[in-house]
């Protein structure tokens, strides 16, 4: 469904992503792990159009989407969330969600001013969906709160909420579990499974919580120093000594069982 082919991205002298290639199969939940600075978020930024790559190509559903702007990729069905929550701080939680959906006639100034019926019907529809999403995320009690006032964990949930409002084909989740309390984390994983099973969303998840990765993801892609080290199911990844090496910085003696 999504093919990353030899993508490179440099920031000055730092090569964040170095000829990275992998494929995400339709309707999979693919995990993307690796130590800090491995280039995971950068590759998300490149896929989602927030950054242009210095080299390589990206294909999505058969089309070359390399270097297309973020807002166009959204309309092709790619939605991403952010590692550091990017909420609309001075807007209510409900507004944060209602802003997302495409095809809002009321975003056109003339429609907003003239064709009230059409605009308000669509807005009502979006509002109901947003309320459903908030119930799902257990955020109903903060519906009118300004998003900037939410806790770190609540902001992470709101990130996910925005992705749910988009109804995308593929969701790129950047550390959805960071800062979310353990009980909710279980629900979160369940929700991702449900969205995958029932709505056929494809997921690619960056996460440091290995339990969550183990529960959800197959396959798991391991990135190190800007490139893919290996790919496989969680068992294979866990068994590979190179992975442990990469996380712990090499030269680590792993005692044989």
């Amino acid at each position: 469904m999504l093919t990353v082919d030899s993508i490179s991205k440099r920031f000055g002298g730092l090569t964040a992503v170095n000829s990275c290639s992998f494929t995400i199969e339709a309707q999979s939940i693919t995990g993307l792990i690796g130590p800090n600075g491995a280039g995971k978020t950068t590759i998300f930024n490149v896929i989602a159009g927030a950054m242009k790559p210095d080299g390589g190509r990206i294909q999505f559903q058969g089309a070359d989407i390399t270097g297309r702007p973020a807002h166009k990729l959204f309309h092709l069905g790619i939605m991403r969330t952010f590692q550091i929550p990017q909420e609309f701080g001075a807007m209510s939680v409900l507004e944060n969600l209602m802003l997302v959906p495409a095809e809002q006639a009321g975003e056109n100034l003339f429609h907003a001013l003239l064709s009230t019926k059409k605009v308000s019907l669509r807005d009502k529809e979006i509002r109901e969906r947003a309320i459903d999403v908030l119930e799902f995320l257990r955020l109903t009690h903060v519906i009118d709160e300004l998003a900037g006032n939410l806790s770190g964990g609540q902001k992470k949930l709101l990130e996910l909420g925005r992705a749910m409002m988009a109804d995308p084909d593929i969701v790129l989740l950047d550390e959805p579990g960071a800062g979310v309390n353990p009980t909710l984390l279980g629900d979160l994983a369940e929700m991702i499974e449900r969205l995958n099973r029932e709505r056929h969303y494809t997921f690619c998840i960056i996460e440091h919580n290995m339990d969550m990765i183990a529960r959800l993801c197959d396959p798991v892609i391991v990135m190190v120093e800007g490139a893919v080290l290996m790919q496989g199911d969680m068992e294979t990844v866990r068994a590979d000594p190179r992975v442990l090496d990469a996380y712990l910085g090499g030269d680590v003696y792993v005692a044989p069982n």
Binding site: H71, Q86, F88, G89, E95
Partner: peptide, 18 residues
């Protein structure tokens, strides 16, 4: 709502297809 979204977080507005 959209205009204020752009004011509050351009990056997020872009990711939401605006």
């Amino acid at each position: 709502r959209l205009m204020t979204g752009i004011r509050e977080n351009e990056q997020s507005a872009r990711a939401a297809g605006k």
